[in-house]
Structures are given as structure tokens and as C-alpha cells.
Design a protein around this nucleic acid. Structure first.
Lengths: 142, 142
DNA sequence: TTCAATGCAAATGATTTGCAAAACC
DNA sequence: GGTTTTGCAAATCATTTGCATTGAA
């Protein structure tokens, strides 16, 4: 799937550097919605010269170019994904873990919205408690 | 609606300070999903002693107590709301403005999800371009 | 009176930026 | 070869924390 990425970069005249390819591959093969720091930590093992700043810059440009997305979160730390297929996120409110979930086809973009807003895509998160945390925290505040 | 807040604080034994009340009122009367900094800037005009740290602490405790919520965003800056009714967000991908939108009642929590995850609520954002930005940016990257 | 909440300032954590050197086309 | 991207380090921005003081119950 990365040759597709390479081809597409060339087609658009976007420079294909070792770092860009590595960051894209890291995202594409990792469905855990890693943070920039996580991507950096994983890649630097094999790419000793890699800098944190480049990872941040690359993550931003990949998003601008439509190769990946920043996932919306509640905790303020950026999380990224290369999976652009229509899907939803299961978000654990205790540990913050984000898991992909097939999109409910019944959920569609609204037609009319106020103020000339043009809907383009949905971002659906299902907030809840993951299996691990359920066992750990049990029930309280009931 | 703030007397309700006051009553509820007393009932639960949560101390009702001038600052807490001010932050809660600021959120309750403002549907623009302000950041902590915005809340602070607005309140400090009338409450000269108010500190930024208290605003952050209060916003967190209001959330813990179920009086308000942190809205999930894509830009890493915390945004808050006191509107806990079931609703969705229209999010402009250019200016980041968030507007409330009535929830589609047809959208419901999924029954079965993998890994023992227990769904509790949905967080739906409709990403798009707001009227102002549409006029400003026009269409590109088509 | 007592304990939790506040204000201040310093610390932390995430992300961005300026600039010279290296890499891509 | 010319321009873009990188690495490094310093800067910035949002948020948190330690601690003495204040204030609500």
C-alpha cells in the first residue's frame, strides 16, 4: 500500500523522502491511532537521525495532502490515522484507547444545516468503557 | 439555570465558590464552546483576582461532577460546553468554529461491539465548511 | 474552626519555528 | 543546481502543579 503512496506523491510533485515514507508506513500499519511521540519513538530505533520536529511536520503535511488524518480527541494530545475509509471510533473514557469500528450505514450526513454550513464528512466516536477498564474500574458513580 | 447548579452543588457537598459559579455561568450562557483561555479572559474583566489555574481546575472538576463536558476536537486545544442535552456539532475545518446541531434521533448506540467494550454515548461531529469560510476560501484541491 | 479551593509562579508537556546543512528532482 | 526538507535547539502555547493563603461551611 506504500507503493501507492509513493506513486501518488510523485504524481502530485510532492517530494518523497525516506522520513515521509517511514512516517506514512508507520501510520498505515498501526491501527492504534498513535501520537506523534509514539510514531517518533518507534521510527527512531531504525532511523537514528530522525527528529521529532520532522515527524510533526510530516504528520501535518500528510494531513494537508489527504493521506492521513488527525483524529479528534478529548485529551488534547494529537492522534493520527491513515485509515481514511468510512469508520467510527470506539473511545474508552478511562484509558483513552481508540479502536476502529465499522461505520453504521444508517448514519448519514444531514441535508439542511443552518448558516450556510456545508457538511462534508462525519466524525463519529462511540464513548464508553473498554473491556480492560471495565474489569479494572468496575461500576461507580452510579 | 444557575440556581439549579447551586442547589445541586450543595446537595452533593461541593463547595460553591464565586469562581466556580462564574465559570459555570460563562459556559452555560455561551454556546460557542469556548477554550479555557477564552473563559478566563472574559471573566477576569469582572473578577480581577481570578487566576488561569483556577479556571482550568474548575473546568476539570465541573466535568468530573457531570456539569459540563470537554468537547472532542482535532486541534488539541480544549473546548468546553455546559449543554449536556443530546446534540451534535458542526465543525468548520477551516476556522474550527463549533456550532450545536440537533441530534438525529435515528442515530443510536450500536448493540454489539468487539472486545467487551460497553458503549455509553455518541459523540458526533459533522465536519465541513462554514458559511463564512466558504465565501473566504472558495473551492480548491478539487 | 477546618479543610478544600484559590492565586501565584514555576514546571511540564506538546507542538512549532528559525536557520544552516543535507537531500530530492 | 535550485529548492524543499531535514535536524537541531530554542521558542511558544496549553495545561498542570507546589505551596502559602483565603474562604465556604
Amino acid at each position: 500500500m506504500c507503493s501507492r503512496f509513493a506513486t501518488e506523491c510523485r504524481r502530485r510533485g510532492v517530494r518523497l523522502t525516506e522520513q515521509r515514507l517511514a512516517v506514512y508506513r508507520a501510520l498505515a500499519r498501526d491501527a492504534t491511532h498513535p501520537t506523534a511521540e509514539t510514531v517518533y519513538a518507534r521510527l527512531r530505533v531504525a532511523m537514528l537521525g530522525l527528529s521529532r520536529a520532522s515527524v510533526y511536520r510530516i504528520l501535518e503535511s500528510l494531513e494537508m495532502e489527504g493521506f492521513s488524518r488527525r483524529v479528534s480527541t478529548t485529551d488534547g494530545v494529537g492522534r493520527f490515522e491513515a485509515n481514511l475509509a468510512n469508520h467510527q471510533h470506539l473511545v474508552c473514557r478511562y484509558c483513552g484507547r481508540i479502536t476502529d469500528f465499522e461505520a453504521d450505514p444508517g448514519i448519514t450526513l444531514p441535508k439542511g444545516v443552518p448558516g450556510g454550513f456545508v457538511p462534508e464528512r462525519l466524525d463519529v466516536s462511540i464513548i464508553g468503557t473498554c473491556g480492560k477498564c471495565r474489569r479494572r474500574v468496575g461500576r461507580h458513580n452510579a
